[in-house]
Design a protein around this nucleic acid. Structure first.
Lengths: 244, 244
DNA sequence: CGATATTATATGTCCGGACAAATAATGAAA
DNA sequence: TTTCATTATTTGTCCGGACATATAATATCG
């Protein structure tokens, strides 16, 4: 390596060099990088040092390496810059710890087009619909929640009323299917009539609707919950930190 | 290594072995792992192989390695389970790409207790307050934004009206201070009177308020923006994926 | 020509070694 | 006893090598 860069390890210099060539199109996304052997020759360094540079590119998700076939460029920049991290998926809803669900109703339903689209299944699909009020320890209703549970897991219904934790934990315990991804959508709307009534709100009052989809591998929907909270009572915080 | 484990690379076996000893208390959080040299002797393997195992522990955040002093156990398990990741902090607000800010006003202000607390500075602190409407390409107003920019960066004011990107990018370019963390709070409230007026909404109508704080290192506030969006027009999506 | 076998290639695992840099421990001087 | 210098230790950088494994390319066979 050149003396003008002696403050950095060689593998960082090679990493930087390759990264620059990737970002300015010499090695565009979809292309194959030179082999380890070729890079050793080009930079006049050992294979170990080349591999350290390539490993860092792979860790950043910029390159994918495959034994026998080489290193493919799969992205121009590291995919992640900022992240919001949780130790448990249950942090997604940000309820105080001691709230509990007061069950109103559960039944098998066939959902219409609009709901089916949100649930990620065809129109006409069947779901176990569970309605409940979430209450704080003093018994006050905080919000209304309607959960659609994938038909495949409907056998958990008898256990619902004794449930202290989230439904997806019970589904995982009973069926071995775990949440691999969750999608939350926050929007605002006027309370649906039945929800307003259950919460003792007037018909035209505003709510914040948080829809939370819980997916297993291959985007298989486990359950989706619709949560209506009175607008003035809703608050949600996200912390994004830079990945260094 | 023993023959009963020949399906796994040696370094994975050592990684697994150390991980088990960490989780069952042989090497508790706060303790120091055996040196590389000791591990080589214990497992009868090369230093390279030991280092690969230790590197994986370090990548998982379980161990911190320090030249000259060894490997300290800092956590029992990998710290994060689910994460929502963004390539750019500007993804935090989820505006369509082609919206632009239509500036209404900018001035130095002294903020009261309530705002100061949100901004993370003492009451009475000075801020460059910038008010604007965000418009889509057709010119329709989407929301009202009020930005409080740290007094230390007020010299960017003359450049605001020509600005096409986010303020914090300009601050980074001019002052070399970059966003290391962002905090977004989403809640709902009736529109403030002046905001409702500017957006042509009635006084009692609902908005969703997204407050976004942009912090540099050591929690130094760079800027904070308050964004009022008509309730029925607000929607926000988060994707959480499990870190594998 | 298509399918299968063989060979070549490219990355993965692992070894041993040497020197550099950061930290800890020990010894000497004030 | 405290401070500073020296030595020892520990991890980091980098070299060279060998064999294993997965994939790609080429050759052979039906």
């Amino acid at each position: 390596m050149t003396d003008t860069n002696t403050l950095k390890p060689k593998y960082i210099q090679v990493f930087d060099d390759l990264l620059e060539r990737i970002s300015n199109g010499v090695f565009p996304v979809g292309s194959t990088l030179p082999t380890e052997k070729e890079l050793c020759a080009e930079f006049g360094i050992s294979r170990y040092t080349v591999r350290e540079a390539l490993r860092r590119l792979a860790e950043r998700g910029i390159v994918e390496r495959r034994q026998g076939s080489g290193s493919q460029v799969v992205a121009e920049n590291g995919p992640q810059v900022y992240s919001h991290r949780m130790q448990s998926i249950s942090e997604l809803h940000q309820y105080a710890t001691l709230t509990k669900l007061d069950y109103i109703d559960s039944k098998m339903v066939i959902v219409d087009d609009e709901i089916a689209q949100i649930l990620g299944r065809p129109s006409g699909s069947k779901w176990l619909q569970v309605d409940a009020l979430r209450r704080n320890p003093q018994g006050r209703a905080l919000n209304y929640t309607r959960i659609y549970i994938n038909e495949a897991f409907r056998k958990i219904e008898p256990e619902l009323h004794d449930l202290s934790g989230p439904h997806y934990d019970l589904i995982e315990a009973r069926f071995g299917v775990s949440v691999s991804e969750a999608v939350q959508t926050i929007s605002a709307e006027v309370f649906p009539e039945d929800v307003a009534k259950a919460l003792g709100r007037s018909e035209k009052s505003w709510s914040v609707l948080a829809i939370r989809r819980y997916l297993a591998l291959d985007d298989m929907p486990i359950q989706t919950s619709f949560n209506w909270t009175p607008a003035e009572e809703f608050s949600y915080v996200m912390h994004l930190k830079r990945d260094d």
